[in-house]
Design a protein around this nucleic acid. Structure first.
Length: 364
DNA sequence: AAGTATGATTCATC
DNA sequence: GATGAATCATACTT
């Protein structure tokens, strides 16, 4: 009987913030969520859980999932065990009380008190379980995915998609939140790809969303592209040509699609009329000059123009490498080439060493 | 092992 | 608060 006098192990309010936090995290991690008790084949099912475009590069990811499901199983088992124990103990105490009630009067209030004490005790144990489970998950995360600053390269497809977007929005490579989400989904960047990230403080615990991954990528890309445009020209051409195919396909719908010549090869993009593209380019340029940037239509067309710009310069100035390089550089073309702000103080345009901006240039 | 590429982090700035 | 710039730390290449 003396065992029950624990008295205020912890103030256990139903709305205990600590408990709420734990519960939330467990839920977020899929530990406490409504999970079918597959268990054994959980790892395989985990891969299909994402459901989106099928490309889960995750080998380690599945490993992580396996461990996680292991934790979940333990958690549920323990939880059940505790519950059962709680019930058993309660009935046991009730029996004792009932027996005692033969020798002395026992008020219902006393019984109630006993029960509540028992429940409180067990819920405190439960919380401990939750806490240690959370800890385990945290450790797992840091061990497998988080790994502090362990860098994990994106797979080829992901970088391709990102590059595609980047070079088709060269004049304004600042994807919106929505676009970032879209890209992240397309790239198959899940939580596994990045757990830690500053650029998206979603939540204390749930930080490291895929979108911040994308943000990082674009941040790095922008700065590195700008830093040494010459180095990226080749890449730019590749992706410009790649997206130009779709761009021409799209625009071919509206205009006449008469292009009997050039059956295939890289020249397929050259089926696009120069005059046409020129008009489009010019018009958008003028729009771009004003504060029309934000307009949806403008942006939409702009993305096509960005890719077309490369194709144009590629086909037009093929013989002249210097002209091409000027065409590629955003500074050379659009008033907005500097990104973010039109003020382009020094000359970054020239691929050759500029006077002031010599950094870690190994080319040439 | 040295050099490079690249994702993430930190800090200053607008 | 998002971005640029510098930096860190690791992955990849030579």
């Amino acid at each position: 009987p003396a065992v029950l006098s624990i008295r205020g192990a912890q103030e256990e309010e139903p709305t205990d913030p600590q408990l709420m936090r734990l519960d939330n995290m467990l839920l977020a991690e899929g530990v406490a969520g409504p999970e079918k008790g597959g268990g054994s084949a959980a790892a395989a099912a985990a891969a299909a859980a994402s459901g989106g475009a099928g490309s889960d590069n995750s080998v380690e990811h599945s490993d992580y999932r396996a461990k996680l499901s292991q934790i979940r199983q333990i958690y549920h088992t323990e939880l059940e065990k505790y519950e059962q124990a709680c019930n058993e103990f309660t009935t046991h105490v009730m029996n004792l009380l009932r027996e005692q009630s033969r020798t002395r009067p026992i008020s219902p209030k006393e019984i109630e008190r006993m029960v509540s004490i028992i429940h409180r005790k067990f819920s405190s144990i439960q919380m401990q379980l939750k806490q240690s489970t959370c800890e385990a998950v945290m450790i797992l995360r840091s061990r497998f995915l988080d790994a502090r600053r362990k860098r994990r390269n994106f797979n080829k497809q992901a970088t391709e998609i990102l590059n595609e977007y980047f070079y088709s929005h060269l004049s304004n490579p600042y994807p919106s939140e929505e676009a970032k989400e879209e890209l992240a989904k397309k790239c198959g960047i899940t939580v596994s790809q990045s757990i830690v990230s500053t650029r998206d403080p979603d939540d204390e615990l749930a930080r490291g969303s895929p979108t911040s991954c994308v943000s990082n990528w674009f941040g790095n890309k922008r700065i590195r592209y700008k830093k040494n445009i010459g180095k990226f020209q080749e890449e730019a051409n590749i992706y410009a040509a790649k997206t130009a195919v779709t761009a021409t396909n799209v625009s071919a719908h509206g205009s006449q699609a008469n292009s009997p010549s050039t059956p295939n090869s890289a020249g397929s993009s050259s089926s696009f009329n120069m005059s046409n593209s020129g008009d489009l380019f010019m018009s958008v340029q003028s729009l771009n000059g004003d504060s029309y940037q934000g307009a949806q239509v403008g942006a939409n067309v702009q993305s096509q123009v960005d890719t077309l710009r490369h194709v144009i310069s590629q086909t037009g100035g093929y013989s002249d490498g210097l002209a091409a390089s000027q065409m590629y550089s955003p500074q050379g073309i659009s008033a907005n080439g500097g990104w973010q702000d039109a003020t382009t103080p020094s000359s970054v345009t020239s691929p050759t060493e500029g006077p002031g901006s010599v950094h870690s240039d190994t080319s040439n």
